[in-house]
Deep mutational scan, measured.
Amino acid sequence: EFSMMFKHFDKDKSGRLNHQEFKSCLRSLGYDLPMVEEGEPDPEFEAILDTVDPNRDGHVSLQEYMAFMISRE
């Protein structure tokens, strides 16, 4: 189920989600993330990124995504 969600939000089929795609994916899974303006701080989402994209390369791989989802179950 999680990998299907990942593929759905991987719009460019790159095998990874940019942070915006990842945020959309989390919202569709029921995460209550506040709407913030582009460039505004988003501490809740930043905290999630610290876990799922610790190297802050700007992308979430399928492996990082799956590890995050399994840790939340």
Rank of each mutant, 00 (worst) to 15 (best):
Q63H: 12
I48P: 01
S14Y: 09
N18R: 06
H59A: 10
P41K: 15
P43R: 09
D32I: 13
D10Y: 12
C25M: 08
F22L: 12
E38A: 12
G39W: 08
S14A: 10
M66K: 07
V36G: 11
D10H: 04
L29S: 09
F9C: 04
R56F: 00
T51F: 10
L33E: 03
M66H: 07
G39R: 06
S71R: 08
Y31G: 03
S3A: 04
L33P: 06
R56L: 04
Q63G: 11
R27V: 12
Y31Q: 06
Y65D: 02
R56K: 06
P34R: 11
H19L: 05
S28G: 11
A67K: 15
P34W: 03
Y31H: 13
Q63C: 08
D12N: 15
D53T: 02
L33C: 08
I48E: 00
F45E: 01
F2S: 07
Q63P: 11
A47K: 14
D57L: 14
I48Q: 00
H19Q: 02
L26F: 02
E1G: 05
E21A: 06
E37N: 12
C25S: 02
P34L: 08
M66E: 15
V52N: 01
S24P: 15
E44S: 12
M5V: 10
E46G: 06
S28D: 07
E40V: 11
Y65H: 07
F9S: 11
L49I: 07
E37M: 12
R72G: 12
H19M: 04
E37C: 11
Y31E: 08
R27H: 11
M35T: 13
T51M: 14
D32L: 13
M5K: 02
P43F: 09
D50A: 06
S14T: 07
A47L: 13
S61A: 10
F68D: 02
V52K: 00
S28H: 13
D53Q: 02
L49C: 03
D12L: 14
S61R: 11
A67S: 14
G30N: 09
S61E: 09
F45G: 01
P41C: 12
D10N: 05
D50G: 04
S61Q: 08
N55K: 11
